[in-house]
Nucleic acid binder design. Structure first.
Length: 491
RNA sequence: GGCGACGUGGCCAAGUGGCUAAGGCGCUGGAUUGCAAAUCCAUGAUCCCGGGUUCGAAUCCCGGCGUCGCCUCCA
């Protein structure tokens, strides 16, 4: 029952053993808050969330840091254009850059909650709140000769000073043709050196620094915040595949040169980029979805979560609306199974005498084994499908139904995409109501269901079928049972 | 150009040397039903192509075709 994960650093699947037994420290490259988060961002964060949940399920005490990048990334292209993405957003939206950051941070948090993240498990530090910590590292790197100053206050990291640069990503420095596609900044000693601190009088986000008022380079924030919250060395660092190079490579260089400890990170995980309708997702193509886009189409957070998680994180995934719908149908089957168990437990449906202990143990085992295997969630979901099929075949006792429901809750906590436990109640008329107790349509639908029962008793099939169709159009499935009718919500 | 990934029934997707190739969605048929729905059962795969290694390959090796990713901001 050992967790195994693929470590980008070794390019192998390794047995997971935290640096400190029982305690796991993870850092997740979080959102850049200059625009609405999209499903691609969340695929990566969901990988991190799943790993965190699984390690907790396996008994580890897990600390998760997810940074908020609220300072514009300084890139070579941005130097040419004169403003970074944060500033561009500020200009576009006629807001202060800090206001832009807070606005999209709030949107990110709201979307994350909708997707089932339990944010109490995360510490979410903002880059702009950690300028001193960044400066401490920059200062240290200057003093140890790994960084150098240029001009009025720019500071660059010297790649030449770190022999292992490129080890994580497998990039050979000689292959990186300097100046091929990026503008050569003359002031650098080596075109591949990257900025730790930049000065620019026109920049709207600036802080005082010993070497000149300015703003931090892109990579330094993660080195600073991971060190502050997790220490010089920690267990897991995650991000999208694009972060591998240069971002994570630069982090390793900065952190290891500053702390003189290695490895900076024991396990690196990178999530493959999402595609949409067979194409690379890109804002320029307009083929990306925000969470709100999908909610507007009528999908629920848990359905979006499931759709983004079903494909293994290192496999290319093609996101389609059909894909979400497929998952929705699967979830409905799971929910129907749980609803029946609930009715049995509550005495609303005739209980049987079957015990389910063996089935529950077998499927729980298979479920966990799937996740142990580098988060092979497809195998785990197959175990859930098998669980549903097996339970549907049986006629569980009240105790068995109760135990099965408990397992479903357990599995739901484990991965967060099975959906909530259904509800059921016996209405005044005796018809079972499987919708929310507060649903405003409850009274009307129950009345229609009762009218249909009357029509059926009178063998007025046309009237009965018409009423059933109306009920279905309202989003409920009318089910005839030996004990009378029942209304279940349709996803 | 450098590095890398993937190609499994209509669709999605497990499986990386050995029982009858998971599971889901969909389709069709059966049981059930007044008819349905749900449920159960049944039906469906030359595992991209061509070689090779092996007693044995979807799984390893070589070649090809195709799709895609990173190398530049992007999760």
């Amino acid at each position: 029952m050992t967790v195994k994960i693929y470590n980008t650093a070794s390019r192998k699947i390794e047995e997971f053993e935290p640096l400190e037994s029982g305690k796991v420290r993870m850092y997740h490259c979080g959102p850049t808050v200059y625009s609405s988060p999209h499903i691609g961002n969340f695929r990566s964060f969901l990988m991190a969330d799943l790993l965190g949940r699984h390690l907790r399920a396996r008994g580890h005490d897990v600390t998760q840091i997810m940074n908020i990048t609220d300072v514009g990334h300084l890139t070579e292209d941005d130097i040419e254009q004169g403003e970074d993405k944060m500033l561009a957003a500020a200009r576009r939206e006629k807001l202060d850059p800090f206001e832009v950051a807070r606005k999209y941070e709030e949107e990110f948090v709201a979307s994350a909650k909708i997707l089932g993240f339990d944010l109490r498990n995360y510490v979410m530090p903002r880059a702009t709140d950690h300028i001193p910590e960044m400066q401490e590292i920059i200062q240290g790197l200057l003093e140890s000769g790994h960084a150098y100053r240029v001009g009025d206050g720019d500071v660059y990291f010297s790649i030449e000073s770190f022999g292992r640069f490129g080890e994580l990503s497998g990039k050979v420095l000689e292959d990186l043709e300097s100046g091929a596609r990026v503008a050569v900044v003359d002031e650098k000693k080596d075109p591949r050196d990257f900025a730790l601190w930049k000065t620019d009088a026109k920049h709207l986000m600036q802080w005082d620094a010993p070497w000149g008022r300015g703003f931090p380079g892109w990579h330094i924030e993660c080195s600073a915040m991971s060190r502050k919250y997790l220490g010089d060395q920690f267990d897991v660092h995650t991000g999208g595949e694009d972060n591998l190079f240069p971002h994570h490579e630069c982090e390793v260089a900065q952190s290891e040169c500053f702390t003189h400890k290695r490895p900076f990170v024991k396990y690196w995980l990178h999530c493959r980029h999402l595609r949409v309708n067979g194409e690379k997702m890109a804002k320029s193509k307009g083929n990306f979805f925000t969470i709100q886009d999908l909610l507007d189409k009528g999908f629920k957070g848990e359905e979006i979560r499931l759709a983004l998680m079903t494909v293994h994180y290192r496999k290319p995934m093609n996101f389609t609306l059909e894909g979400i719908e497929e998952g929705r149908a699967w979830m409905e089957r799971v929910r129907d199974c749980r609803a029946r168990l609930l009715r049995i437990r509550e005495g609303l449906e005739t209980a049987g005498t079957d015990s389910v202990g063996g089935v529950l143990a077998e499927k729980r085992e298979a479920f966990g084994a799937g996740l142990d295997d580098d988060l092979n969630i497809a195998a785990s979901l197959a175990a859930v499908s098998g669980l549903v099929t097996d339970l549907n075949k049986l006629s569980p006792s009240v105790e068995a139904a109760s135990a099965a429901l408990a397992l479903f809750r357990d599995l739901e906590d484990w991965i967060g995409c099975l959906g909530a436990e259904p509800v059921v109640e016996k209405s005044e008329s005796g018809i079972l109501w499987g919708g929310e107790p507060t649903d405003p349509r409850r009274a009307d639908l129950l009345t229609q269901a009762a009218a249909r029962e009357a029509a059926r008793a009178a063998k007025d099939w046309a009237q009965a079928d018409r009423l059933r169709d109306e009920i279905q159009a309202a989003g409920f499935r009318l089910v005839d049972t030996p004990d009378g009718p029942r209304l279940d919500p349709i996803s």
